[in-house]
Nucleic acid binder design. Structure first.
Lengths: 347, 347
DNA sequence: TAGCTTTGTGGGAACGGTTCCACAGACAGA
DNA sequence: TCTGTCTGTGGAACCGTTCCCACAAAGCTA
């Protein structure tokens, strides 16, 4: 590991300037010198010290990905983990190495390290903490936000069109005959859940079929467990309402609710149709598979890195919000067309 | 960002050596100087440059996690992602930042970067590539392997007791009355799948109930899709065999198979019991929830970092293999005790 | 009072690269 | 032959730290 450019120079009988020139490929170097130096480098498996390079170039070619986690383990999260995955893949092709940190609440210690480590840029996933944004701006580190809140101005955002997605969901459920729909709406402090609910209600109202507040239940978190728990808690109210369908503002909640329904021997979609939002892998795997509004996580991850790279290279970046259009994915959980009376077939 | 120890020294009216001493806390510095310097540091939000530090200390406090991916997106993988998660969490408390790279096949470009970036250590997850191990040993970077193959000697390993887990599974299924069991065994080139199968067969044989080769099918990958596909392909053979239970060498395969069974309106566990191995989150979420042999992924992740840290600090590390004991987790997919005749209730 | 230790501080080399600049030789054009 | 450009190379400063060493002042002991 303690092999330096100096040793290479020594063996090749040239100065370290020359070796440096050969490696970088810029500046003059005779073909013979070039060959000789390269041969020695290969032979000794010399790898330039990226730290030393970064010191002078002021570029580390490292970026940081900071994921705000709440209770859920995050790298393995079916939604954020997927985004992380495609960031890592994209980073490889653009020659960045990526630091991954998860932070919860205010103890953004691991985020602070990013500054000390002098990352070239940051990708923030999910929530944003004012405290951290302040630091980022103070240190003038380029950054983009993926699927985060939009209340800080001048931030480059990559978001899903959650509003439009909600509307798509409404259109679809209306289209296959549902009129009386129960909603499981995740934490409304979270931009996505908020917009998905708003979009959905908006879509329903647009077709003269407004959703009353009483048809909405609010799981305390966007998790499977909360979906299950909330459905269980609302069960009698649900039965009384004679609902034919359930729309959840994300897949995990939908799957949790579905699990409870199945335990009550409710047939899906024959008795109740269930629809989610996100398009996580597991939505397809469950039985029945879940109809959902699919977010292009892969593309969001990839583009966040491309955008960040542009920011780092100080190229002009047009606009400051990239919106992704989600896509309706019809699966078993809503497959059956209910009869147009729209009545519940429960009981 | 261009705030250096020099500027701090200038403002405090001391030399940079003194500032350095104040920051590190070692060496003499009068209380007044200490206070003054600290105040300026806080005021200016100075953050020491980790690159420069690393240059002289020869320690970056960065580690690399390299995950060998095959087809599946890896950070979001329910098994490896979980391990990654707990590594990241543990790293934070030990003051390491972590680079995450995924590599497939021989193009270990992003692994090479790890050397240039001078990571203090490496954690290799899943498969190992001879090529990479050679590099690692050449550069003398401390490393540990999590859940990998054991054919390279002198490597620090953290593995699950897959063999014993397989035996546990056999004991359990036998214990609840199953005699005629179908096995879905993942890629036998993979240590885990191989040992789980071996352990299971061994356990069955030990109770005078050997599994014939004809009762084993081999999905080509350890994925949900392959589990589904294989079950579908083996369907008639399965029916003919009058099996009462299925054991898969990992949860994903089990869940895939279960999906196919449910589509055939097979009742689980009433007609067929299904059992997996891994203990991924989704095993619990599915309907019916999946009985499995749970691997302590969290602890594996955490301990891999602790072990690596010891290696980095050159403390003596006893032994070179840490084995984790998996745990039987009984859930709905096997809940029913079949009658002791052990006959299939299919058809 | 001489000598030693303790406390406090600053100078400068080193870490391993990049890059600017100087310089030398070859070669071309006037 | 002189000047100018091109090619090829080495020396040295610099990036931002740490840390060794020198040095000075003060306090203690004999």
């Amino acid at each position: 590991m303690d092999l330096t450019i100096k040793q290479i120079a020594l063996r090749a009988g040239v100065s370290k300037s020359t070796v440096s020139r050969v490696i970088s490929g810029k500046g003059y170097a005779s073909p013979e010198t070039r060959e000789k130096v390269n041969q020695i480098i290969n032979e000794l498996q010399y790898k330039p010290n990226a730290l030393a390079r970064a010191m002078v170039s002021q570029r580390t070619n490292n970026i940081g990905v900071i994921i705000f986690r709440e209770e859920y383990p995050i790298a393995s999260h079916p939604f954020y983990g997927q985004i992380l995955d495609s960031i890592i893949t994209a980073a490889e092709s653009l020659n960045y190495s990526v630091f991954v940190a998860t932070v919860r609440e205010m103890n953004s210690r691991s985020a602070d390290y990013m500054f000390e480590k002098r990352v070239d840029g940051l990708i923030l996933i999910s929530r944003l903490r004012k405290h951290l944004i302040d630091s980022i701006q103070h240190f003038k580190v380029p950054y983009v936000m993926v699927n985060g809140s939009t209340d800080v101005s001048g931030v480059f955002h990559l978001v899903n069109n959650d509003d439009g997605g909600g509307r798509k969901a409404a259109d679809y459920l209306l289209g296959i005959g549902h009129r009386n729909i129960f909603i499981l709406a995740g934490p409304q402090t979270h931009r996505s859940h908020h917009l998905r609910l708003a979009g959905f209600r908006d879509g329903m109202s647009g077709h003269n079929n407004p959703i009353p507040d009483s048809s909405i239940a609010y799981p305390a978190a966007s998790s499977f467990e909360e979906g299950y728990r909330t459905m269980k808690q609302e069960w009698s109210r649900f039965l009384d309402g004679k609902y034919t369908a359930i729309f959840a503002t994300n897949d995990m909640i939908a799957l949790g609710a579905m699990k409870f329904l199945l335990e009550q021997f409710i047939r899906i979609p024959e008795q109740v149709a269930v629809m989610g939002f996100d398009g996580i892998d597991y939505a397809e795997m469950f039985s029945p598979s879940l109809t959902t509004i699919g977010v292009d996580m892969k593309e969001m991850g990839r583009q966040s890195l491309v955008l960040l790279d542009n920011l780092i290279r100080e190229e002009t970046v047009s606009g400051n919000t990239v919106e992704f259009e989600p896509e309706l994915i019809v699966r078993q959980s809503t497959e059956k067309i209910v009869d147009l009376k729209g009545e519940s077939s429960l009981l």
